[in-house]
Amino acid sequence: MFKRMFVSAVVAGGVAGFLAAALHFAFLQDRLLLAEQYESGALIHFQAAPAMGHDHAAGESADHDDAANGEAGHDHSTPQGAVDGDGHSHSHEPSGGSLGRNGLTVMFDVLVYVGFAMLLIAGFGAAEATGRRIGALEGILWGLGGFAAIQLAPAMGLAPELPGTPAAALGARQVWWWMTVLCTAGGLGLLAYGRGMALAAAGVALLALPHLIGAPEADGYAGVAPPELAAEFAARALGIGAIAWAFLGWFASRLWSDKPA
């Protein structure tokens, strides 16, 4: 059984990862590169220009875990080539130029989606072991459920970020992210497969819980890129996720049901 699960996950996740990467290059990469020009200071959005009296220092401290860690060196108005003062200098241009960078994007999209596929197929296995068949329709619904749990629900508290967007401390955001993923997956599972109103109510409560607690927030808004760019980025990132996940669910269910147990 493990081999059947593993092979289905690698094949379905691999293909879905390539699809996600293709959509990434079609819809997202130019937005991301443009945002980095604002992040580095090569481009300056008029509202964020220092001449307008916009106080970067106030927002900067919320940008990183360690505000005392040489933030003075992190000046968005410095022209291109500025080194981040936050300890990890990410040049955004790994050796190999954009080809190398985009190759890594394809590779990590495949890795991430194989991971998603493993979780999805673990769910298929559990559903089947309790006597439920996973057809194409169930596959698509499971895929969209995975999208809701891993991307959509976390995005309601922590929107997909443009590079250079100030945000709350990383550790706190990661904790809230994992909690939201677990609660949403559990809540949807209870709604879909639970019997009786009590379990349905528990499912709704689980879905709501992370949002009642609330995601960690940065102090104020201090992004340097135009809001239009951030909106486009977030909407497209979620759209790509929805498409890739729906495909992943459908394809994984086809691979899964084609093979003898």
Binding site: L28, H64, H90, A155, P160, L170, F233, A237, G241
Partner: peptide, 22 residues
Amino acid sequence: AQSAALHDAAHDVRHATGFPCH
């Protein structure tokens, strides 16, 4: 995972997938 090498390599995918990145 926050190792610098992993972070840089996975950077674009992390932003695109909505993982808390940095």
